[in-house]
């Protein structure tokens, strides 16, 4: 069974690769390369896969899930400039693809029990989102 919890955070970023010139970054990322940054209301949907516990009837304690999302994602990223304040985005470009993968890396170690992390969906806007998942051993 899959369960999904949603959390929102607001953050700013600049999409520009240090390996490219200003013109090349402009051509690749468009307005997202504007040097002083811009922001989004990001929405994150985290999906866990597991069987309901026979006693509690729950796949995972939703209150604990809320706390994990707050600690690993919303706490460090909400109202932050990702490039300057949230590693590794001082070194890698904070595209939606890279942020989704980083959120997976932060969350995955928290779900080593019966419920496993199944998918991370990150909305940059209502019209642009990325799904990220890895095979979990």
């Amino acid at each position: 069974m899959l369960i999904t919890r949603r959390v929102e955070f607001s953050a700013s970023h600049v999409c520009a690769s240090p390996g490219l010139s200003e013109e090349e970054n402009r051509a690749l990322y468009g307005a997202a390369a504007n040097p002083h940054g811009h922001g989004h209301n990001y929405a994150l949907e985290v999906t866990l896969n597991g069987d309901p516990d026979p006693v509690t009837g729950m796949v995972f304690d939703l209150r604990e899930l809320k706390e994990i999302l707050q600690r690993e994602v919303a706490g460090p990223m909400d109202h932050r400039f990702l490039n300057r304040e949230v590693p590794p985005f001082d070194r890698i470009v904070p595209t939606t693809e890279n942020i989704a993968a980083e959120i997976w890396r932060r969350l995955q170690p928290n779900f080593r029990g019966k419920a496993r992390l199944s998918n991370v969906r990150l909305y940059e806007t209502e019209d642009l989102f990325v799904d990220y998942s890895e095979a979990v051993p």
Partner: peptide, 9 residues
């Protein structure tokens, strides 16, 4: 697996 989705109207 990375999957990107874009919405249009």
């Amino acid at each position: 697996m990375t999957r990107l989705t874009r919405g249009y109207q």
